[in-house]
Computed example of a mutant assay.
Amino acid sequence: MDRIPANIGLAHLSALDLPPVKLLELAKRVGCASVALRLHSAAPGTPVYPIAPDSPELFVLKKGIAATGVAVSEVELVPLAAELDVTTLDPLLDVAADLGATGMIVTGDIADRNLLVDRFGTVCDMAQARGLKVHLEFMKWRHTATIHDAREVVEGAGRANGRVLIDLLHLFRSGGTVEDVAALSEGLVDLVQVCDATAKLEGDIIAEASGGRLVPGDGALPLSESLAALPGTPDLALEVPARGTGPAAREDFLVRCVSRVRGLLD
């Protein structure tokens, strides 16, 4: 990285049981400057906090942003599936822009690569009209499974606001390497989600991603090397579902995670 980012964000997965305003308050207490909000369903049955434009919930959330000083960085998580009617994303994009977010996080869930490139490009155009980026996140169990898949889609779409999102857990569980990170062109990655994990997968990969991540530095992933290899200066977000019982234990856990990330950067 060319320089150390001043701020660390908090991904909603780190405390997905909390509604948006409570997440803002938690982020402030643990030392995070921004949050990514789960305003769109990532999968059936998973927690989600939809907010409509010009709604009372949006008004309350904007008051929370002003009160805490914690920004909303991205809204998430939109699976780009073949059956998705992209016009249904207009309200989400309007809310993102109203909140002052910088982008939206999506996944690639279409097997036909040409169709996915076209769909991603269309969503990028919709987001660009609102001044937003679109971050494509890859996961081993999705059709866009690797860093190479995501790069092909983003570069194929050729939109100025299209980005690859790197979650370091997904990078290494899908066979990615530090060299793959170093090979990326500057400007292709604006957001990196940080956590740690065991050297080899132990159990179910989705269960690990949703609840088995480790505090940065407690596992075996080459975190320092990966961050050093990043071109440019992407934003960093902590994505580690907090362990422990009760609010105090969760806060202590996340404070330790934030401290570890800053230590990796130093």
Rank of each mutant, 00 (worst) to 15 (best):
E155K: 12
I110Q: 02
M104K: 00
G64R: 09
T146E: 04
R38H: 07
G156P: 04
A228S: 13
A71P: 07
G69A: 10
T198S: 13
A207I: 01
G69V: 12
P247K: 06
R260F: 01
P231E: 13
R250T: 10
V30I: 13
Q193C: 07
R130Q: 06
I105C: 07
G232W: 08
D167S: 01
T146N: 06
E239T: 04
A36I: 08
V95Q: 06
H143W: 10
L184Y: 06
A15C: 09
V134E: 03
V261G: 04
L168R: 11
C32K: 04
A248K: 11
S185A: 15
K63L: 14
K133I: 03
G212T: 08
L214I: 07
P20Q: 05
L171T: 03
L99S: 01
G108W: 14
I8M: 08
L16M: 14
P56D: 09
R29E: 13
T68G: 08
E251S: 09
P231F: 10
V154K: 00
D167F: 00
A183M: 11
E155N: 08
D98S: 15
K28L: 10
E208L: 12
M139F: 15
I206L: 15
G131V: 07
A160C: 12
L136G: 00
S185E: 15
L227F: 01
L230F: 07
A52I: 03
Y49T: 01
G246L: 03
L115W: 00
K22G: 14
E208C: 08
I105E: 05
A52S: 14
A27L: 08
E208T: 14
C124D: 03
P222E: 12
A197Q: 02
K22T: 11
G9A: 11
G121V: 06
A197V: 00
G121C: 10
P234N: 10
D190N: 13
R119G: 02
A111C: 01
L165P: 04
S14R: 09
L132A: 01
T102A: 11
D180I: 03
A207L: 13
V75L: 15
A228K: 15
L223Q: 11
G219R: 09
D94E: 15
S185D: 15
S259C: 09
H135S: 12
L37T: 02
A82G: 01
L191S: 06
K22C: 11
A27C: 10
E186F: 00
I65M: 11
T102V: 13
G9C: 04
T198L: 14
L214T: 03
G64C: 07
I65T: 03
V181Y: 11
G156Q: 04
L168A: 04
A6T: 12
R250Y: 08
G175K: 01
E225Y: 02
L223P: 11
D17A: 13
T46I: 05
P241F: 11
A36K: 09
G103N: 05
R113L: 10
I205Y: 10
G121R: 10
P50E: 05
T146H: 02
L39V: 08
C257K: 11
L227Y: 02
G103E: 08
K28G: 06
I4W: 01
V86T: 15
L13C: 08
L115F: 00
R262V: 01
V255I: 15
K200E: 15
A228Q: 14
L16T: 04
A67C: 02
I205Q: 12
R250H: 15
A67Y: 00
C124K: 06
R119T: 14
